[in-house]
């Protein structure tokens, strides 16, 4: 049985090593690749052992003893009854249709383009600033108030009265409208990013955000540039979020 123990140990060792690599790295190796590697490790180990006569003998003897020795009769009977069922189950497992949920990647916040063509000019998103933020005092307050008005005339049907993404139409949409409350949507984004998303809508999303393209309209067609900025400022003000900034 020595040969089989070696094979078992080596195969198991390689399996654990591969799992260990995945564990240390943080992203597990794909199971299809792991099983392929383990399978060939097993094969090569058998080959190495069977090169010599002695090794080959140590591989075949246990099988032949198992098959033909009088003492192993009971074991044999058990195995020969169970084995067909095991094999049948394997065959069944491979042939039965799978009900696994089809999975498609969809990036919710894809990398923005560096330049966006909107309002008939090329806008560099890295350089553009929110003009509303330069206002102070009453002018600023008024702009935010205007933004609120624009929001409730246009956005609230989907994004909701509380800006929580639970508007009237929200249930019918997939992907669902994003909430602005909470710390993981607009709080993570620069204002220029939000501006791009409003202006270009679902149609302007890059391919990695497909499938189920968002139904966010292209607001460039119905809102003025200034109005968009007002709305953007409003949703930050209303939810108490700060836009992400790279420098102070």
């Amino acid at each position: 049985m020595g040969a089989y123990r070696v094979i078992l140990l080596v195969t198991l060792g390689v399996y654990l090593l591969l799992k260990g690599i995945g564990f240390v790295y943080g992203v597990a190796l794909p199971s299809s690749v792991v099983s392929m590697y383990v399978f060939f490790t097993f094969l090569v180990t058998v080959l190495i052992i069977s090169v010599t006569d002695k090794g080959a003998l140590s591989l075949t003897t246990p099988i032949i003893e198992f098959l033909y020795k009088e003492e192993k009769k009971k074991l044999r009977k058990v195995v020969f009854v169970v084995l067909p069922f095991v094999l049948a189950f394997i065959a069944y497992a491979f042939t039965k249709p799978s009900y696994e949920e089809p999975f498609t990647l969809r990036v919710v916040h894809p990398a923005p383009p560096r330049i966006v063509n909107a309002y008939d000019r090329n806008i560099e998103l890295e350089k553009i600033k929110n003009p509303i933020r330069e206002l102070t005092g009453d002018a600023y307050e008024e702009a935010v108030h205007d933004g609120g008005e624009i929001y409730f005339k246009n956005c609230f049907f989907c994004h909701g009265a509380k800006l929580d993404g639970k508007g009237h139409f929200a249930k019918g949409l997939n992907p669902a409208p994003l909430p602005f409350t909470g710390k993981d949507t607009i709080a993570q984004l620069e204002e220029s990013y939000v501006f791009w998303r409003v202006v270009k809508g679902g149609e302007g999303l890059p391919e990695e955000s497909a499938p189920w393209m968002s139904v966010m309209p292209v607001w460039e067609e119905s809102l003025k540039e200034e109005e968009v900025w007002k709305v953007v400022t409003f949703i930050y003000e209303y939810t108490g979020n700060e836009p992400r900034r790279w420098e102070k």
């Binding site: 084995l83 094999l87 049948a88 394997i90 065959a91 491979f94 042939t95």
Partner: peptide
Amino acid sequence: FTAFLMPL
């Protein structure tokens, strides 16, 4: 016995 693998 490997004939059982045929459906596979």
